[in-house]
Design a protein around this nucleic acid. Structure first.
Length: 427
DNA sequence: TCTGGGGTCCTAGGACCC
DNA sequence: TCTGGGGTCCTAGGACCC
């Protein structure tokens, strides 16, 4: 392996991203245990280092550890996705200055291709990425660099978790690769989840290094081609390339648990109308239409003491659409067909699929919908909402959301996207 | 009557990611 | 009272075709 000649991947990952976003605008949170909860204030999804040190686990249900959180003065936030989305954009804009090839992999991480950078000192360059990103955005990040994406993930992990690396780790020799893989738990490997890890450990494969030593054929047989790819990548053979496109989504989903359980069709209809409306909006945003709508509802699976029911209904549309009016109409028809009285419903959702481009739609022979008119209305609604704020104009069926809305009891202000929430500096 | 075998498409289910 | 949401990819198996 010669780092100066071949393509290198950098993985830049924000540390404790949601908590870090909260801290940017509220520095008094620094040094204190802080957690951010998922939608509905359900589970812990981001933890400060202090919170991790207290033993709070990722995905832990908040209600189970409430006394613990109080006892240790842990500061708790509901998730504020508007704030996090905006901060994410700022981070990505900064990162884009460091490479022409950037793949935004998730809200808080991106791969940069460092191909053709052989005249740069990679170590210095990576440290630069880290320092400037933090300086520009206030968000601390870690950087891992290696010959494959999977190894860059490994490197990033060491950069973040082992203080001697000071946030940046580069795998630039076979010796280092092997040494690090021998310390790297199999379950932490990108592409190996809990199920596969459990399976592999039965065969004595406990570390990433052990996986590189397993026979290829056996890996393919038991972990499929994706597992084989992971093995090759750990060996330093790049199989997963940069994905620079923003591919059209194959499905768009909008689903929520209700703040409290629901029994009545009209209220669930209101919720489903909102989910459907959101799907339609997302479709229009990517200039696409959907052919298929699925609606699902279910009771609370965790409550074994209650009667359980879950059902879903798929409707194929005569003509692909992105009209809120149509999608809400079909979604409600689907809901009506699966709703049963007498259950306590916990969650519902709408998934649209069969997604095609808005242009060049196939029309049906007996299509009675006035598509031009729908399009005009939707354009007007989107324009008004982008100007005055989300859901300022909506269908009557979407209601007032009071009955079923999320619990978000500890929401921070939208410092960066709402003028009323902007921080005022007094001099 | 005989009832092979290769190809394609679709779907459900299971794994994974953050 | 209270247990996230939004995605992707792969495989196996059935239906269907010639």
């Amino acid at each position: 392996m010669n780092s100066n000649k071949c393509n290198m991947f950098a993985l830049v990952d924000c540390n404790n991203f949601y908590v870090s976003c909260e801290r940017v605008f509220n520095p008094s949170l620094n040094g204190k245990p802080v957690v951010v909860l998922s939608n509905n204030d359900g589970c812990v999804i981001s933890r400060s280092n202090e919170a991790k040190a207290l033993g709070i686990k990722m995905g832990e249900p908040a209600f189970k550890i409430e006394p613990f959180l109080k006892r240790y003065n842990v500061i708790v936030f509901s998730s504020n996705y508007i704030l996090y989305g905006d901060m994410s954009q700022r981070v990505m804009n900064t990162l884009a200055q460091f490479s022409p090839d950037i793949e935004i992999y998730s809200i808080d991480e991106a791969f940069l291709s460092l191909g053709g950078f052989e005249f740069f000192n990679i170590d210095e360059y990576a440290r630069n990425i880290r320092e400037i990103t933090t300086k520009n955005t206030g968000i601390p990040v870690s950087v891992g660099v290696a010959q494959t994406k999977t190894l860059a993930k490994v490197a990033n992990h060491f950069g973040k978790k082992h203080s001697e690396y000071k946030g940046v780790c580069i795998i630039n020799s076979d010796k280092k690769r092997i040494a690090l893989l021998k310390q790297f738990k199999i379950v932490d490997v990108w592409g190996i989840g809990r199920q596969y890890a459990k399976f592999l450990i039965q065969f004595g494969i406990n570390t990433a290094y052990d996986l590189t030593q397993a026979p290829e054929k056996w890996v393919k047989q038991n972990l499929s081609v994706t597992g084989l790819r992971t093995q090759q990548e750990l060996l330093g053979i790049s199989c997963v390339q940069m994905d620079l496109s923003t591919p059209a989504k194959k499905a768009i989903c909008n689903a929520r648990s209700f703040g409290k359980m629901q029994t009545k069709l009209p209220i669930i209809t209101e919720a489903v109308s909102n989910f459907a409306s959101r799907c339609a909006y997302k479709l229009r945003k990517q200039k696409a239409c959907a052919n298929i709508i699925m609606v699902f509802i279910h009771t609370n699976q965790y409550r074994q003491d209650l009667k359980q029911y879950a059902s879903s209904k798929v409707i194929s549309l005569p003509v692909a659409t992105n009209s809120t009016i149509e999608i809400v109409h079909y979604a409600n028809t689907a809901l009506k067909s699966i709703f049963k009285e007498g259950y306590l419903y916990k969650k519902a959702g709408v998934i649209v699929s069969g997604i095609v481009s808005e242009t060049g739609l196939q029309t049906a022979l007996f299509d009675t919908t006035d598509r031009k008119k729908h399009k005009k209305i939707m354009n007007a609604v989107d324009t008004l909402n982008s100007y005055y704020g989300k859901d300022k104009v909506m269908l009557a069926a979407q209601g007032n959301k009071i009955q079923w809305k999320l619990r978000q009891e500890k929401l921070s202000p939208c410092y960066t996207t709402n003028w009323n929430d902007t921080i005022i500096v007094k001099i």
